[in-house]
């Protein structure tokens, strides 16, 4: 899990990215959510020895990142930060699966390495698109899209609340952690007792805050329902985006483009 300061910065950065003004930012979040979901399912649906057929899928994150003007380096850093988990589980494959999968010249490539490569590619593909989704739609956009697509209202509303108070509470937490470390000259680490009291104070404050928020809501006529004006009509651009991309994904799922392309090229060369 991220360190609290960097975690906070990261959320803030993603949130700022979502304020962008490109056509991808303006696009109905539902379209992006659906396209990304279909993308992920398609990518993971390949069997574990797939390498080349996965490559064309990079076009989707590439376009999202390119046309959305997202910072590549920042996204890459995020991907690298979570990479170890996939890496450590994936690295067992070359150790356990040693049968030669194919021979290229004198080099024999084992199935384990192929499937390990496949895992890492899937990993990069799925993670970059999810990060791009948030950076292009914002968390609130995704929440509203979910609600429009049928997620239960109480769930979505509390999700919006969570995101709203994430900033306030994380900020509070950071201040407390900082104040503690300023006074704890000797140790950089926090014992469980200090932890419990620090987090406990945070919790009590959070509970009080929840009560005050509820009060503020009641003062403005809250009766259990949270009303919202959300002009979210269907526009042809969003539909075209969704249908176009999903169509392409499915096509690429059953048609190995690189293989055909490569056959063409090597055919010419040879």
């Amino acid at each position: 899990m991220a360190n609290i300061d960097s975690g906070f910065l990261q959320i803030g950065r993603m949130d700022t990215l979502a304020q962008g003004k490109t056509w991808l930012h303006r696009l109905d979040p539902r379209a992006k959510l659906i396209a990304v979901s279909v993308f992920i399912v398609t990518v993971v649906s390949f069997d574990k020895y797939t390498l080349s057929a996965l490559i064309p899928f990079f076009v989707f994150p590439a376009i999202l990142v390119g046309a959305g003007g997202l910072p590549v380096r920042f996204l890459m850093a995020r991907v690298l930060m979570v990479a170890p988990f996939a890496f450590f589980i994936g690295i067992f494959n070359p150790l356990l699966d040693r049968q030669t999968f194919f021979q290229m010249g004198t080099i024999a490539v084992s199935g384990g390495w192929i499937s390990f490569g496949s895992i890492m590619i899937r990993f990069v593909l799925t993670i970059t698109t999810v990060l791009a989704l948030i950076a292009l739609s914002g968390f609130n956009g995704v929440c509203l899209a979910m609600e429009k697509l049928g997620a239960p209202k109480p769930f979505v509303v509390q999700l919006l609340f969570l995101y709203r108070y994430l900033f306030v509470l994380t900020d509070e937490a950071i201040r407390m952690v900082r104040a503690r470390s300023l006074r704890a000259f000797h140790s950089k680490t926090m014992g469980i007792k200090t932890f419990a009291s620090l987090v406990g104070h945070l919790l009590l404050r959070a509970l009080d805050r929840a009560q005050r928020i509820h009060l503020a809501m009641c003062c403005r006529g809250f009766d259990g329902r949270v009303p919202m004006i959300k002009p979210m009509g269907l526009d042809w651009k969003a539909v075209a985006f969704t249908v176009g991309w999903c169509g392409l994904f499915i096509l690429l799922r059953f048609y190995n483009l690189p293989l055909k392309l490569g056959a063409l090229v090597t055919g010419w060369v040879g």
């Binding site: 919006l160 005050r212 928020i213 503020a216 403005r220 919202m228």
Partner: peptide, 23 residues
């Protein structure tokens, strides 16, 4: 309220100011 963070609970400023009238 004393702490505006308690009072501004909706995702955007517009939503927030609209909360009361919509209710």
């Amino acid at each position: 309220f004393q702490d505006p963070d308690d009072q501004l609970f909706m995702p955007t400023v517009f939503d927030d100011v609209a909360f009361g009238p919509l209710n």
